[in-house]
Structures are given as C-alpha cells and as structure tokens.
Design a protein around this nucleic acid. Sequence first.
RNA 1: GGCUCCAUGGUCAAGCGGUUAAGACACCGCCCUUUCACGGCGGUAUCCCGGGUUCGAGUCCCGGUGGAGUCACCA
Length: 551
Amino acid sequence: MDRKKLANLLFPRIKDTPDDLEARYPKRNLPDGAMVTRLGPSPTGFIHLGNLYSALADERLAHRSGGVCFLRIEDTDDKREVEGAVPALLSALHYFGIDFDEGVGANGETGAYGPYYQSARKDIYQCYVKHLVAQGKAYPCFMSEEEIADIRASQEQNKENPGIYGTYAKHRDLSFDDVVSRIGEGEEFVIRLRSEGDDQRYFTVTDAIRGELSMPENVQDVVILKKTGLPTYHFAHVVDDHLMRTTHVVRGEEWMASLPIHVQLFEALGWELPVYCHNTVLMKIDEESGQKRKLSKRRDPELSLEYYQKEGYVPEAVREYLMTILNSDYEEWRTANPDEPLESFDFSAEKMGSSGTLFDLDKLNDVSKNVLARMTAGDILSFMLQWAAEYQPALCSLLTANEDKLVRIFDIDRDGPKPRKDLVYGRQIFEFISYFFDDHFMIRDDFPAECSPKDCKEILRRYLAGYDPGDDNSAWFGKIRTLAGDLGYAVKPKDHKKNPELYKGHVGHVSNVIRIALTGRSASPDLWTIQQIMGADAVKRRIAEAHGLFD
RNA sequence: GGCUCCAUGGUCAAGCGGUUAAGACACCGCCCUUUCACGGCGGUAUCCCGGGUUCGAGUCCCGGUGGAGUCACCA
C-alpha cells in the first residue's frame, strides 16, 4: 500500500475524504431545468466587453431557468493578482446589471457552497489530490523547470509533441523511498495526473452552443497541483464546478482545447460532466493588418468596460447590444416587444452563435439611441446626473442647477409615434445640448452661403425687431416666411427648387441664420421649442450678439 | 508544426435539401420637412474554392484555402 503511504506523506494535514466533502456540499434543491452557472474571473483588474458578454450569458441562462448564478474568484495565481480588482469587478458588473445570487459579493461571501475564493479552498483541492494519489492516478513530480525546458527543446528538435507524457514523465514511478528522500532534502514538487489517455482515441462531448465536439484523448501528465499547493485552472474547475453543483459551464472558446484534460479529470474523479457552453470571443478589425482578431486586453483599452462608463453609455444600452449578438433573434423580439424588459426574452445557449463576432460600435450606438428613446426625460436626466457625478465632475453643478430646463430639453419632440432619436450616450448628449449653456455656447458652423453677410445682418436685425416670445409656433414661423420673402428668398423650399434662379435661397437658409445665431450650429431640433426653453432674454441677447458679428 | 473550432453582403446574421437567399446596422437615392433627427419608400452588396452525393446543395460528404483558438507550475 505504497500509494496510501505516499498520499499520507504528501498530504499529512488532509483528514477529509471525498465522501465528507460530498456530504458537505450536497446537490442543490432546484426545480427541474434550473441551471446553475458561474462567472469565474481571475482578479487581474481588467474587465472588458468580452467578460460582460460572457457574464450576461451566465446571468440570463440561470435566471431565465429559475436557477442560480454565482461568482467565484479564481485567484490561484498570486503573481497576477491586482489589488482592489474584486470590488472593481463587482461594481462594473453591477453597473451593467449583472448581480449574483451567491458567492463573492460587495459585503463578503454568501451561499452554502463556499468558500468562493479558490485560494481559500486549498484543503478541498488537496483532499481530492490526495485521493487521486492514493489511487495511483496522480503522482509527485520533482522535475525542475530547466529539466522540463530541456525535454521540450529536444522534443521540438525531433518534431515530437512537446510536454510531459509517456516516457518523458520521468517521475511517474518514483519509489516511495525516493520520494521520502527528495522531500527530506527539501526538493519542491508538483502533482501530476497520470494520464491513461491515448491520442489515437477520440471522444465526443455535446456542447450546448456548438453541438457535438470530437477530440483526441489527453495524453499529457498535466500538473494539477502547483508547487504552491494551489491547483491549476484545470483541476480547480473540475473540483469547484462539481462541488458547487454547476450545471452549465459558460466560458470562452479558448478553453475548448483543454476539454480533453477536463473530461479526463471528471472521469478520474468519477463525476458527471457539466454541460459546456463554449462561446465565441469578441473580435475587432486590426487597424494595421485589416484582419479580424480577438479583443486584447493590452492592445484594446477602449474596449474596457470603463470606457463605456466614461463615455456615458446607459447600461441598458450595452446590455441590449450584447443581447443582439448573444442571441440573434433578440432584435426581432425587441421590435415585436418594444416595452418588455429584456428579462422576458427567451434566452438560450442553443441560439448563441459559434463564429467570431466583430464588435460594431455603429450598432451599439444605434441600439443605444433606441434605448434612450424609450426612456423618459426624467430618467435620462437622472442618468446624466449620475454619470456626471462619476465621470464629469466639472459638469455637475451646471447640470444640477438646471434640472427642470434639462428635462424640457430632453423632452423636445420625444412624444408621439416618431420621437427624435438623437441622444446616444452621455458625452455625446451633453455635447448635443451644450448650446443651451452660455459657458459652452459658441458659433461653430458657418452661416449659409446663400445669405450674404449683409443679408445675415438684415435677417437678424428684422428678426430681433419682430421677435415676440408670445408667438405660437406658426405665428413665429409666419414672420420668418415674410422676412424671407421680403429679402428675396423663396417662402417655400420647393419654389426655390423649381426655380433656383429666381431666388437667393429659401426660408430654410434664412431660418438657419437664426439657428446658428441661437445654437451656433446649422442642425438642431425645432427652433421655436428651443427658444421657449432658452427664454426670451437669452434669445434676444444671442441674436444681438450675432448681429454684432456683421458690423 | 500538432490538435480543435469557424466560414452567407462592409458588419451582425436568418436559413436545417427545392426561398425572387429574411431582417438589423452602415452606405447611397427619393419622399416628408424651415435645418437636423425621426419616419416612409427604394437601391448597391453575400452563400471562400474544388470535387462528390442528389432530379435538385448556401444547406449533406470529402479535399483545399482562409481566419481564429490552443499546445505553462496563466487563467
């Protein structure tokens, strides 16, 4: 019974048996069909759209089925750990509407399947490692990094598959005494799986997104326990998702290649496989090569979630956009159900695509426009206030001092069957309405070429003279028509279009002179409404100022 | 290089052996219109290539090609 002795030698502290753990983490009591999903980020401090994309799938799958979605922090590599990454992750996900039922949370851990930090689960992993060693399915390996590098070098030279397997697994059958003496000399070791796999043999697994997957068995004696006593991803995944009773493992397709290892591990431990859902990675077009490529943390900082928060995208818009690429029938559903919450959409893993998706900012913006069009002006205001408080402190006092005015501005032309859709995201929204505020007002567009400086001056003079804040929209515009006619501009654009030689231009050009004087730009919502919000004094002042420009 | 996944317009994509090959974004034109936005109408543009199977292939099979991922004591 050398194996037993070996197991005890290696893990003297571990008293629990697999049965103990099985009893401590019993099957969940959930209705049929309820999915248990999880997000397992490593706390590296960088969260990008792809993570949200995946998290949203986890969250939807679980909640749509009446199951649970939990957060587990995969911190088995202290080298990569970043201070404060967990709270940052939590708050970013919360911002975008992802909250967990269980696991690591803002106020510590909740749930009966913890601990939810892998670093705190050392004894759990070691219990199973010990068990595997006792069964002869795993063994300590003392090979140094140099030794392994040498093996790899010669394998590459001989065009063999690299890695520790077969005869390269030199420490597979070390004698008990050998192990005792090496440990006595303070040699460090890892635990490797003794692979019984054969890469000529294929197995199949059904992936919920991709269907049948066929792969060769794993032959590598992979490391399952590192020198530090912590498990590698492979082992932690298998142990945790079994013990935490995960039913559906949603993860990026970069994990597909290690599926043979995971399947082998589940088998070695005698456990049932979860349903795998390997989703696609988000891609972008590389500026230099023009090729599609995976979103990269280093190279694409603009794809970090923080970017969208800073720009002031409404969280709902980002979720909505992600839903459209997660399940391609989502848009159709949305068109048919404009007012339903996203939660009532029938989300499924099967509808997720399996080819790489290119991130499309135009599409996000379009989705965002529509989301904002569905919000009330009051909701938009509170969003802007929150956003400014967090990311544009310089704007805060201005916004809070003008709440009523802002609601009126956001409300311009929003009711009715064809609401304006020109609000997209925070930064753009403020930019779009900035002319209402003197500190941000400037004449930025040219006066229409159809109107000579002399005409511009005259238009402004007469407009100011005839301006009556009490005019309703049609009385007001009637005056502009008259004015335009008097100065030789067509009263109706169509007349001008038919006989351009008869006119200098048309009312549109004339009113654009006024528009530019008032807003600084040649494009704006309805001028009469703008004036009502601006107030008579401001209107008169700006017209007079513009008039002065032509002196 | 080995292994794996993927392949329909510029982008996201429906399609499941017989379709005029949906729809959305973007783009262009027209209409509405005092500008813009909205809305309406229309348009440009796609089945990677080559072999099979079949009366018939975007759809099934094989082979290329291309793209992606992965081959750590990182996840």
